[in-house]
Design a protein around this nucleic acid. Structure first.
Lengths: 287, 287, 287
DNA sequence: ATAGGTTTTGTCAAGCTTTTGTACAT
DNA sequence: ATGTACAAAAGCTTGACAAAACCTAT
């Protein structure tokens, strides 16, 4: 295993603790003992990052720095998977570090210790939200977001294997034409699968006629179209209306509102993907 | 295989890294070792391009260039395609070595690459069969088998989480009293879940009154009792008869034959757990 | 366990009692006896915070300060949590109803909100104790207990994933031959993992030769054997003596007493699984 | 409650070194 | 293409400082 090591400035950026303070914590409390590069630069590992984050959290909670350091140092270096927040933090760190193996390990720990819905709601959705916000503020690099997306999508699709089998009601899922963000849609599908539904997944940027063809051929109990911006749906408002005439159509995502849904003859889903899946499962069955 | 090779300008254009910098990375960190053309031009392969992209992504994420190069060079050029037999072999080795984490990693590789039913049929069932044969021949249990059973059981129960949700028919699964081998029953449950059923799992060594109580409370579409030896079932033949009177009872495992099942008023299931699950799903639904 | 301690200002902010008054209560009534830091600062524990809150509530209710202090000092310190009891109750209900998914959801809520050790101590151990008492009184097993045990076991083994990784000392855990109650052993393993140990888990009903083989192959810092009844251990007393000769052997569970342990050349562990893990971690390390 | 002294802790400065992308001459 | 050079950015160490928080005693 090759350690991912960063210098003090990067650690400072990631943790929000200034380089000066990091050095002070090292000098005064022995909080960190980074190895040095040839040029005598400090090199920090992800475990160090976890320590600093823990320290910072305690200090912000009002614990004196010296005490916080004592506590952090007394804790085992490797927290067991039994610790939810630690595992969630490890996932974030691994994704930031382009650490493919580490990301998978952290996800494994989370998913084997906790239910999928909890992991989705408490870890994955907040992470997606954070990426979105950072992207808006221009803080995250394209490469980083891309890496995280690829890792998560691959992993979630792995979980999704065989999700179209069984005897439950069937749902056909797609992103609106032009809409490329599909992680939320996959989470939605997995949550719905957890309720016993069968999923037919068409993925990102699905042309409306593909969707209509699938709908005609499968006669699903629900057709779901997701869009993060309103424009994507308005552009195909007419076709959606046609589709709604022949299948139970649901619209989801931030680009949806009640007015638009009604205009299409569709029904809106609300909230995050996990909540929306519960809403659909509750509402569609009695029909 | 003839490599498609490009010159430095083209590589720079593709990766967004200037030619000067590419040369600097080669000189300082040995990141690349391109072959030379007749005119002493550098010629790069797709693997080189992958290296440069990985390097660039890390540097943009804040990792110092020297560190990034060290990491990129330490990684295998192409992450080996998941090879089924290799992963299966790794699983066997890890289980022999009492290596919990290694076993999980191997199982992860198998399950993320090949789907549950394949893994069950090609790896887990043969393993169970081998244990069963040894046991039949009266060979003393090999020490590692105990560990392996515990690891696999924990892992499969992890896959099983939430398997009673949904709208499908419900099955209540149990081992006969005294029967401790439950791996097969878990595989059976997972295969049945794959068919859309809901599973209530009572596990090894289930007292008959526990089973009867669960059956009354849940009114399942099937109650399944497993035993590897005939004696376990004969010992509770009377109670099984009572249970069969109030619920659809199925018997499975090597300890079952048609005569015994009939005598109890139950129906037999045949073959390995995956096959038996298919049989139950096919036979129980039309009822 | 490392205490989280705060200084007087933070305690004042948290309780709404001024630093001056806190010092006065200490001087006049001996309400608190905080330890001092190197620089002679007072350091308060969460128990102190509970005391101050109780004191404040009484004073505001009109009780004279001296009287209030006397009452508070006579009371045991117990921090309560309403959220916690609600989630614990939901778990109990779901387990009673054979509701697998509901049980997992309740466990998710507990584990992600309160941390493993708290949940173990406040929910799971009392549950085990209740089962144990019923069993001792010879009451027939309630059907639900069987289901509950299976669910909890699967869940805890999920949390245990990867618990043999890391660099800490290694422990090999097993139930004595014939001993089928393994929930306590898993809790013990998880608590020990929380102390930084690596765990190799052999589970219920472990033949002595399996245990010996694992011990020889892994050379652990501790081998632990659990039994709830004394007979299980006496039946293998000779083999335990041999094992104790080649590895540090510890015995735990209600079936252990000092005399028996000494006769085997082993050392006894006391109290519930979490306490026993702390005992082992404290005693085995200096060796 | 105030006064006067001590401890804690985040921040800064000066002077020097290392890293790393880019530039230029041959 | 090669080899050398350069300069901006980032780091290192030592030492110090000052605001906030805390102590005791009156």
């Amino acid at each position: 295993m090759v350690e991912r090591r960063v210098r003090i400035g990067e650690l400072a950026r990631r943790t929000g603790v200034s380089p000066d303070l990091l050095r002070a914590w090292e000098r005064r409390y022995g909080l960190l003992a980074p190895v040095r590069s040839d040029g005598n630069y400090r090199l920090y590992t992800p475990a160090d990052e976890a320590r600093v984050s823990a320290m910072k959290a305690r200090v912000e909670a009002g614990v004196p720095a010296g005490e916080a350091a004592r506590i952090v140092l007394a804790e085992p270096v490797l927290p067991g998977a039994a610790d939810f927040t630690a595992a969630a933090g490890a996932l974030g760190t691994a994704l930031e570090d382009f650490d493919d193996a580490g990301s998978h390990a952290a996800l494994d720990a989370l998913l084997s210790g906790f239910g999928f819905e909890t992991v989705a709601r408490e870890v994955l959705l907040p992470y997606l939200r954070r990426i979105g916000e950072r992207w808006e503020r221009g803080e995250t690099t394209v490469a980083q977001e891309h890496f995280a997306t690829v890792v998560l999508r691959g992993r979630l699709l792995g979980l999704a294997r065989g999700w179209d089998r069984g005897t439950g009601p069937r749902a056909v899922l797609s992103c609106a034409p032009g809409e490329l963000h599909e992680l939320g849609l996959i989470l939605f599908g997995l949550a719905l699968r957890g309720q016993g539904w069968r999923i037919t997944y068409l993925g990102a940027d699905t042309p409306l006629d593909s969707l209509t063809a699938a709908s005609r051929s499968l006669q699903p109990a629900a057709v779901v179209v997701v869009a993060l911006t309103r424009g994507r749906l308005e552009a195909v408002r007419a076709e959606l209306g046609v589709l709604a005439g022949e299948a139970p159509l649901w619209l989801a995502g931030a680009g949806v509102d009640a007015e638009l849904a009604e205009a299409c003859g569709a029904r809106p889903l609300h909230g995050d993907p996990v909540a929306a899946a519960a809403e659909l499962a509750g509402a569609a069955l009695p029909v």
